[in-house]
Design a protein around this nucleic acid. Structure first.
Lengths: 219, 219, 219, 219
DNA sequence: GATGAATGAGGTTTCATTCAT
DNA sequence: GATGAATGAAACCTCATTCAT
């Protein structure tokens, strides 16, 4: 768990205020990027003074990171639900893909924020963020796959951790394709499909097919 | 082809100077991000005055985009070589993966720059960049796959364009895992492998296995 | 006597609280200077709320001045003791020098605060402070010297008030040399002696020699 | 010599501009103190843009220190003149006192700036400043006194370096009494003389008497 | 009496861009 | 073609002070 980056005063603020600040923060950071987001604007939109903002967060970076943490939790909870079921791996995969699509639309701002993070240049911060964001999710994928591996439900010549990595790459790319301008255009260039008008069912099923063979492939 | 974003004066400059400016630009933009890169510093490092820089490029953004165009060409040429061969698809895939690894190490700065682009907030610019960067590559993938599809060399229930998209997602993620701090950490969290010390052979073979089933899968 | 700069509420506070607030105030102001001292921090360290602080003092300046007044009293009492004895002037001088050394170490924070005051830019305030701080001490010096003058114990061609002024300049400089970073370095540059490791006896005796001739000089 | 605290661009500026900036800087810093001086105001009064100011000086502190250095040189040159003569020590002393008076009036702003420095809280900076400001002057005093000491022109029981220290304390206090509000008031409280209307001749002669005995005292 | 959340003006600093030479 | 001095808008952040409770 990343170290908390908000001050005690923030904890004492009302839940609605906390919510509002992070929501506005996520929106501003995801729309403008970290550098171009304006903390005075965020404060104003959140309905508090800039002084109070600095009572809650020591720096712009701290606010940014707290926004990210918030976004993380949202996605993680959804995943938990799915992973703790005892569905077969392929069923879980389908659920995860559908959930990914659903959340990419619902929490588009957060996904864009996530994309923002991936170009973080400060190595220490990058590491802390990666731990915060990827660790929990990765463990869920890895253990589910390892379990299936043990039951001989997946190819025995694929290492569970790399398998999980490849899988998440596909999900991550899908998320970005839903939410980030560049990736949306890229999606259309590749598939000819405009994300906003797409037949999601089809993409889900195609992705499932693309990966299912990895689960059960037999030469 | 993206509209050229340099002025005529730039074309008249010596090849070495052009080279130097873009090289330095790629380095600075990839190390610091667009916002934090300093065009005055780039000019100095490139050995020209800031005044001359503005004789060559109208804005910081124009320089940025010209740097990107430059990086693009490097990667494209390598791909051309592979795609025009008449290897079977799986063989081509292996070559592409290996080339991707090779270039990620050799042109790390450019890959990081590419990652930078993907969080572009200006929709018009994002579109132009995507066209510039993704179109040519995507066509090569798509046509190779379509060809294999026609020969019944790949699953008939996978659409070539989506197939190409998924495939490129995996390659793109691999590139970033080689070069960008965040993705490198993510790679290690998933796989337990430090990118710098990794057994590339193993990752390549695992990725091949992950996708090969998609090529030839039979229920 | 300087006009009181605290509100009635401060008088009603317990002696310990008054004590604590001024002690912390002296410390913070002397360590950081007036501008950089933070009244919210002072309140916190004194164990009271900022709101209450403003019930006690109308402004940061008022707190500052009250701190100074407090520090004044400490030094004055010590001087009183010495000056009302009927020692010869040179003996008094030695006692004053020794007391100055002693108090400079014991009340270093206050001396630093005093140094802070000497660069006050508000002429009205400067005047009030000077009256408060210098008047009482100066009268003691002047009257002691005048008395010795009347008894023909000191040079008759030196005016008692200027004599007192020069004398106090030397004592004041000594105080600062004990307590303020800049003056400590200056002391070492001149004398080659590090204040912390110095043979105080020697400095006292040298200073006495430097001034004694002024007392009893005969051409 | 303190490390230079201006950028190369400042050296390239015209002498008049350099002069103007430092003059305005000395004025603003001495009138308002370091914290309350406004760098934008200094730039405006000096007739340059704030951006250019930062081309010349990296920080407000650097400008401040450069202002100090400038002030230093002015005073040092005057002292040089006197100290390199082969007057007897007492004659030199008189000249130094008169010069001190003269310069305190002429360069009042700089003297106030000097007073500002003496409450510097940053130990490293305090040390650097002390070296810069005090070293050269102190060596001149010390060597003149040591020389007189060797010739048996001064008391043999006073160490030259402490002697120089005490002497400079008196001169320093006199400077401040000419220029700084607080010290001016203090001067009047002690001597009954308003600095602006004072009979300088008398103060000089009294100070000379105060110290001369130290030179030639015989028990 | 006591609290501490809330305010917001104001200062330092950065850097893309211009333009006279 | 080439230079680099000059500009100034804009953003982060601090902290003395207020006031509702």
């Amino acid at each position: 768990m990343i170290q908390k980056r908000y001050k005690e005063a923030f904890e004492r603020a009302s839940a609605e205020r906390q919510e509002k600040i992070l929501e506005v923060g996520i929106e501003e950071f995801s729309n403008n990027g970290f550098e171009n987001a304006n903390i005075n604007v965020i404060a104003k939109k959140a309905g508090i003074s800039i002084g109070l903002m600095y009572k809650y967060f020591s720096t712009k970076e701290d606010l940014f990171i707290t926004c990210i943490s918030r976004g993380c939790n949202i996605l993680e909870n959804a995943l938990d639900e799915i992973m703790k079921s005892d569905d077969k791996l392929l069923v879980k995969a389908e659920k995860v893909i559908r959930t990914t699509c659903y959340h990419s639309k619902k929490n588009a701002n957060y996904i864009r924020l996530y994309n923002e993070i991936t170009s973080e240049k400060n190595p220490t911060l990058a590491k802390a963020l990666a731990e915060e964001i990827e660790f929990s999710t990765s463990r869920k994928y890895i253990s589910s796959i390892a379990e299936a591996f043990a039951k001989n439900d997946v190819r025995q010549d694929l290492e569970p951790r790399l398998f999980a990595f490849f899988l998440d790459n596909l999900l991550m790319s899908l998320q970005f394709s839903y939410t980030c301008d560049y990736y949306r255009d890229r999606f259309e260039i590749y598939t000819g499909i405009n994300v906003d008008e797409m037949d999601e069912e089809k993409v889900v099923s195609q992705l499932l097919k693309f990966i299912e063979s990895a689960f059960t492939f037999e030469k």
